[in-house]
Design a protein around this nucleic acid. Structure first.
Lengths: 216, 216
DNA sequence: CGTCTTTGTGAAGAAAACTTCACAACCATC
DNA sequence: GATGGTTGTGAAGTTTTCTTCACAAAGACG
């Protein structure tokens, strides 16, 4: 189910948007203002955010910046009644995916949502990883061991992986597997077996390259 | 000034060793037992540790392990009255640099210290960095920016670096510079100008390699 | 000389990363 | 259908990393 968050201080608009989006088959979370949106964001993974540019306290642009810090690739559509080139440019420079002006027609909004989601899907399969998460994933020796084991063994079940790494606490393994999964380095197949993705293999190559380059 | 820590529970021996080492031009820190040694280690950078194998509470071998966790390359000379092959082998396997038996002659101890320090110096210029510190240094985007700036500008003064990165709080800069310095990526010349080391340049190369390899 | 900028240090606080614990759903199998 | 291994989740606690604050020594400069 595609998860969408709508952030707008106008209650009527917020709820009518929720209705429309749910009608179109999306799961919708509502937020009244920026702080609330950030809390939702911390708890849940969204596929798209609809964001009002003008909001009390934490403005839409600043909120967009904060969202970018947390989730650099999460698509965000900005919505505003005050359409100005400056605002639009500023929003797009901050990484907004689209920019819709109020009042808007339902079908225009849905078209924008559909298009942005489609781009994101395309984008995500185009091996786009961000450097921070790649490097911080790899900076943990335990996670490197996981990758190395998987490369050697091909595919492993959860418990076998634990045993190979002589780990008694399986929740720790879960924690690191989750990070590696989010970084795009490994995935589970239909039998729940863990295996490296192409990026995972490449990441290991990179580590070897680093080691060679830096001696040690 | 070369910093040496002496860890021994025998007060007389500890102090006579301190006297000898200070006479030889070293700066000496004394620790009575393992816990104290670890505290010193957290606060200060040492060049060498002299460690009694037999100590109450935290034994020398276990302490050696703990030291290895914190500082994988810090030379440690083990000292013991109970010379046995098993102990010696165990200590060397844990990464001790040398193994001296009590009672020892002053010149034998100083010879060992001199030799181990010499090896460490040789080792450290052989570009041996450990992968964890390399990767975690590079996983911070701010630190990557510092490296990039230095590569572009050649050498920079502290405040100029701050200004280029639009940083108002200079202590934050100090924090990250320290990490990069410890990772061996940059150094200060005689005029206090910061500049990249060979390893620093190579690290940046590695980052570029990663980016190319992983797309984005 | 006093004052301002530079270049730091150390400690306290905040945030992020990591570990551990308590629990539960699911499956095989006896 | 009880039992035991597998595969997880969420929350609490710990440790590490990062930021901020308070302060100070050293040099530049009027």
């Amino acid at each position: 189910m595609t998860e969408i968050m709508v952030v707008d201080d106008d209650q009527d608009l917020r709820e009518s948007m929720a209705e429309v989006l749910e009608g179109a088959g999306f799961s919708v979370t509502l937020a009244w203002r920026g702080e609330e949106a950030l809390e939702h964001l911390a708890r849940k993974n969204f596929d798209l955010i609809l964001l009002d540019l003008v909001m009390p306290c934490l403005g839409g642009l600043e909120l967009l910046g904060r969202i970018r810090d947390k989730a650099p690739r999460l698509p965000v559509i900005m919505i505003t009644a005050f359409a100005s080139v400056e605002n639009a440019v500023a929003a797009m420079r901050q990484g907004a995916s689209d920019y819709v002006t109020k009042p808007f027609r339902i079908d225009a909004l849905l078209a924008s949502v559909g298009r942005v989601l489609e781009e994101a899907r395309f984008e995500s399969c185009r091996t786009s990883l961000d450097l921070d998460s790649v490097l911080s994933s790899l900076s943990n020796p335990f996670r490197r061991k996981i990758l190395a084991q998987l490369e050697q063994a091909g595919a492993l079940r959860f418990m076998d992986l634990c045993r190979r790494l002589e780990l008694k606490d399986h929740t720790k393994m879960n924690f690191h597997l989750k990070i590696l999964k989010e970084a795009g380095f490994l995935e589970q197949n239909e039998d729940k077996l863990y295996l490296l993705t192409t990026q995972g293999t490449q990441a290991l190559d990179c580590v070897r390259f680093l080691m060679k380059k830096l001696g040690d």
